[in-house]
Write a protein that binds this DNA or RNA. Structure first.
Length: 340
DNA sequence: CAAATTTGACCCCG
DNA sequence: CGGGGTCAAATTTG
């Protein structure tokens, strides 16, 4: 990883703040928390989407220009002439992706490059094909397909294939739709390099999750508050419920929430794998529980976040802010340390 | 002018 | 053979 220049850092901070505010507004609109403007929620939603999109793009562009540069040409020496296209790679029919439904937006914080569009038999809306923008640089094989829902055109059905190897975000995809592990972490948004908010480190853990740790904020609410007050670098936290992809056989035991060596709160959910409905119900319950437990402490700290609620939807969607597995919240906290 | 998107063609697979 | 995924030239965008 390359270091970020000070001006770049400052700009990214400002952008991240703007984005964060937009995400909050977005969430409030989603939950109709602003009744006085509910007469034109769609226009407002669109505006917020645009703001978020602009921030995403700016951040992606910034992080790209600071650490990476796109290659203009694809393929290189290995690029095949058109006569040898028969050797082109093709997705095997059995490949499975993770399906996520998002309302109003197909944005997920990652930088995607569209490479195709296809009208699908029996579907009103075309299917859009995207690959990671860093495919060229890092050989990142992450892809996604986006299609508007037939039933509700405001819903985008996004199917993810392959994991990001570019470390530009958290792992959302795996080879199985089951989700057995959630990680709550402190760190920068997945769309940014770890260094962008002064995070001491940015690493990929065993599950391929990008972990931007803030272990020094896990010790106590006072310490956390102090850091928030005095460390201007800490302007954004993310609670990340990224799917870790199915791992080998550790699907027993009860749900637990622990702080690991890195100060991450790891909540394992081995018993939520039976069905999307079951998962959703359990996630809702978990969210409500966490919210209930943390609200008094949050209020005490002046950090209450009333928009922090789970949404109904697909098995992976538990949205607060913008991305389906990235929860953009102004002031996230370590639940365990607060409850101590 | 470089990067991103569009879109028709190509190719694989069921 | 047709549907769907990908390629890559052409076009658009910034």
């Amino acid at each position: 990883m390359e270091r970020v220049s000070a001006p770049g850092f400052a700009v990214s901070e400002i952008l991240a703040k703007g984005r964060e505010s937009a995400a909050r507004l977005h969430a409030m609109l989603d939950q109709q928390q602003l009744p006085e403007i509910s007469t034109m929620p769609h226009e407002l939603q669109d505006l917020v989407e645009q703001i978020l999109h602009c921030c995403d793009r700016a951040l992606a562009a910034l992080s790209g220009s600071m650490g990476k540069k796109r290659k203009p040409e694809r393929g290189g020496p290995a690029d095949l002439p058109s006569t040898t296209r028969s050797k082109r790679l093709r997705v095997s029919g059995g490949e499975r992706g993770i399906r996520v439904e998002k309302k109003w937006t197909m944005e997920d914080g990652f930088a995607w490059r569209k490479y195709g569009q296809k009208n699908i038999h029996g579907s009103k809306h075309p299917r859009l094909y995207f690959r990671c923008s860093y495919n060229d640089d890092n050989g990142c094989r992450a892809r996604r397909q986006v299609q508007q829902s037939e039933a509700d055109p405001s819903v985008y059905i996004i199917t993810y294939f392959d994991e990001h190897s570019c470390c530009m975000g958290t792992s959302l995809v795996g080879n199985d739709e089951k989700v057995e592990k959630f990680v709550i972490n402190f760190g920068s948004a997945g769309i940014m390099d770890g260094e962008l908010n002064g995070s001491p480190s940015s690493t990929c853990d065993d599950d391929g999750l990008v972990v931007c740790e803030k272990p020094d904020l896990c010790n106590s609410p006072e310490e956390l508050q102090g850091a928030m007050d005095h460390d201007e670098k800490v302007e954004k936290f993310v609670i990340n419920f990224g799917s870790a992809g199915i791992m080998d056989g550790e699907l027993n035991g009860s749900p637990s929430s622990t702080c690991d060596d890195d100060g991450l709160v790891v909540c394992e959910k081995p018993d939520l794998c039976n069905s999307p409905e079951e998962l959703q119900a359990a996630m809702d319950h978990e969210a409500a529980e966490l919210l209930e437990q943390s609200t008094p402490v949050l209020e005490e700290l002046g950090m209450s976040s009333p928009w922090w609620q789970p949404l109904a939807g697909g098995c992976l969607e538990w949205e607060v802010g913008h991305c389906e597995n990235l929860f953009y919240i102004g002031e996230s906290i370590d639940i365990d340390s607060l409850l101590q």
